[in-house]
């Protein structure tokens, strides 16, 4: 899909999903109708999964929210392959992301909660007790610097002169 209209639209929406179809049409030299149709296709094909603001939660709620990264080791059982295990885990709303990993553990899971206790009880009640889970290692996030391509600090001011030739 490199450099097609669709890839350009994805690029633009990924940076700013509030931009209007009309605006996108101007940027890529297309029509509002065509942009709407392409976005509808991207949605129905499951390429675009949703639209959300990139929120710096630390800033919104202060230190009251906690993010943990959990390494999960499992033994996939006959009836429970990796996909089935992942499907069980991602049902929990606390789970923000889950990926199957290469290397020394199997799943990398990001969990958000309002305090450390909430997260540890989630792990001990829901994850550690699953039949196929053989081990967990939990890492708490101390400070977020960048996520999903966005730096958490406010952008630097434009330090250029007002006019230069």
């Amino acid at each position: 899909m490199a450099n097609t209209l669709k890839s350009k639209i994805l690029d633009i929406l990924h940076k700013d999903c509030r931009i209007s179809n009309e605006e996108i049409a101007k940027m890529i030299g297309s029509t509002t109708e065509e942009v709407a149709a392409l976005i509808a296709e991207l949605e129905s094909d499951g390429v675009i999964l949703g639209y959300g603001a990139k929120v710096n939660w630390d800033k919104a709620y202060g230190p009251d929210s906690v993010t943990a990264y959990i390494e999960l080791r499992v033994t996939p059982m006959e009836s429970l392959g990796f996909d089935r295990i992942a499907e069980r885990i991602y049902q929990y709303p606390e789970v923000k992301s889950i990926n199957l990993m290469s290397g020394s553990y199997d799943f990398g899971i990001t969990i958000e909660g309002s305090n450390i206790r909430e997260i540890s009880s989630f792990i001990s009640e829901h994850l550690a007790t699953m039949n196929s889970v053989v081990g967990t290692a939990t890492h708490f996030v101390l400070k977020r610097y960048k996520f999903d391509g966005v730096v958490c600090d406010l952008p630097e001011n434009d330090d250029r002169e007002v006019i230069s030739l």
Binding site: D158, R160, E161, V162, I163, S164, L165
Partner: peptide, 8 residues
């Protein structure tokens, strides 16, 4: 400004 002659 739209006045500068250098990249942002």
């Amino acid at each position: 400004s739209l006045g500068v002659g250098e990249p942002d």
